[in-house]
Design a protein around this nucleic acid. Sequence first.
DNA 1: CTGTTAGCGCCTTCAA
DNA 2: TTGAAGGCGCTAACAG
Lengths: 362, 362
Amino acid sequence: MTDTRSTPPAGGDAPAATPDRRSPVTLSDVARASGVSLATASRAVNGSARKVRPDLHARVLAAAAQLGYTANGPAQAMARGRTSVLGLVVQDIADPYFSTMAAGVVRGAEQRGLVVTIGTTGRDPAKEAQHVAALRGQRASAVVVVGSRTDDAAVQARLAEEVAAFEASGGRAVLVSQESLPVDTLVVENEQGAEALARALTERGHERFAVLAGPPGLLTARDRLAGFRAGAAAGGGRVVDDLVLHGDFTRDGGHAAMHRLLDAGFDRGCVLAVNDVMAVGAMAALRERGVDLPGAVAVAGFDDISTLRDVTPALTTVRLPLQEIGERAVELLLDEEGGGPRTVRVRGEVVLRASTPDLRRG
Amino acid sequence: MTDTRSTPPAGGDAPAATPDRRSPVTLSDVARASGVSLATASRAVNGSARKVRPDLHARVLAAAAQLGYTANGPAQAMARGRTSVLGLVVQDIADPYFSTMAAGVVRGAEQRGLVVTIGTTGRDPAKEAQHVAALRGQRASAVVVVGSRTDDAAVQARLAEEVAAFEASGGRAVLVSQESLPVDTLVVENEQGAEALARALTERGHERFAVLAGPPGLLTARDRLAGFRAGAAAGGGRVVDDLVLHGDFTRDGGHAAMHRLLDAGFDRGCVLAVNDVMAVGAMAALRERGVDLPGAVAVAGFDDISTLRDVTPALTTVRLPLQEIGERAVELLLDEEGGGPRTVRVRGEVVLRASTPDLRRG
DNA sequence: CTGTTAGCGCCTTCAA
DNA sequence: TTGAAGGCGCTAACAG
């Protein structure tokens, strides 16, 4: 097995940097080729403190390039006790909410030389903990878990435990969601955003609201509903309890919920879908049923997914800086912490569009 | 990987599986605790051939669970000479085309116990090679590069070289794109799909076509244009050369190109945007200019991005099984190869919708 | 079937 | 500064 494969010790010119050789060149190949010790080669190719004589340094680098040397990641990771991996855990990477955030995370990570791995839960909150555990095994140096917390205490406890273990093992973690666990968290101000949205809507003359509310256990959905309710009341309108329907946080969820709403006799008013994807599904349902949109029924969403900015009528929503959130999560990760768990709040911005016409102006 | 987290083996209560201990427990801890050798522990926790006496096996597993043992990924990778990482390289993970495919890849990978890392090129083809090189350094066991090849020979050569090096080092690689490099490739039949689309359109009575063609160097865009051109001609229609405009492969690219088209006097006919995202941008431009859509100008796209299925008028397009493509890429990766580079072809399916009305039926 | 014994490739004290 | 030597945690021949 042991098969010293270093290229024929120079002599001539040829070999060039053809990296296509089986069994990759190692650091000792480089060391040998440049006539220095393994340690020096290591320091030259990647020594934290620069303490290698310039000419040697250059010589080693040249040899490395010439041989086509590439550090063996796992070996480095093992020696250092840590990889440069940032694990990202999301529910569904095909969902624009998550993929946009992921883009931000990837962007931030690549800038800092981190590799990002991605794990998906398929909307099963219990899998978050599993992924974090796996990431700990991989010796990832950081993890960011994006996704609404749920009201399932056991699941949350398990996640908290795994995150704690992850941090105890020397990694950094940040959650993007609600402020519910003792970890650095990037909190999206769902409640405030929804409240502002409701106020804006009442100012436009809307008074009677229905809500397509997402899964009952999802805190994100719940917060949006609560905020919206408060805002509506404050603005003189009201969310009709019988018109609050739950459904999946997806396009189909919104679609189905809207149909049920229509079936229940709803035919006039403004409906908030707790996210844009659901809102689009709701709009499709409205169209299918021949309802005048936005004349009879107005619709508002949440998130301001960019791919959805061109639907008609243009969707009123609360813009969340998704990509930026991803980038900030990475920053948070890398900042040195100064004590207890930090919380960074991100707020959304109400964007009024044609799907919720101004009733008082005509 | 082995995440045997069974509850503490009963018996006593005590230590529990608090994994919060600094300096993780290692395999030798487990071996010691269960009174077997390191090798046996290794085999029990994860020996390919099952050759450990049942009682010992159980004992080891119990100890592992009790101590909260998690294998050290990098160490395993180093010992084995390979990680269980599948590197995915895409242009932009926020783009639904890629994120949907990524979802498929992640799905397939997770099922097989592979971790997927994601690298993005930000539309710079040269970065594909860099990512593949990095992946080789990480000893990834597989890589899938998704994205159109370009006509830049140097860039392609570099990619070919890196992929070859990657494979030479023992990894498996597959490309999703055109059939242009000597590597296993999942070819998306863009030309055929576009041709079929054009034919279907001519059958609906459309004759005069404009094309928002994407970046000039992109093979995907080029193939779609070529196929469309051929199909139009075959159906008795024609793509007007002056009405073929290039633009980014993005929503804004389509938006801008459509404005230019309108500026150039175009006001009647059917326009093909070489992908759905561009088509949506084009539709927005049409709306902004008050053009009757689809009355005066009809629009067709390509991909059938699911998030875009609810735009109005509903977009005629060519459906590509994006998620499935991702899954199949993973399958291809894991199949044993039987010789030279294999090619798997995936075709799209024309989906006629309201954005391209049937002119002959009224 | 189990235990012993080498490394895997690199980083990092510890001397020189 | 540089070199020599030990070890990271695990797997994989080899014997027993």
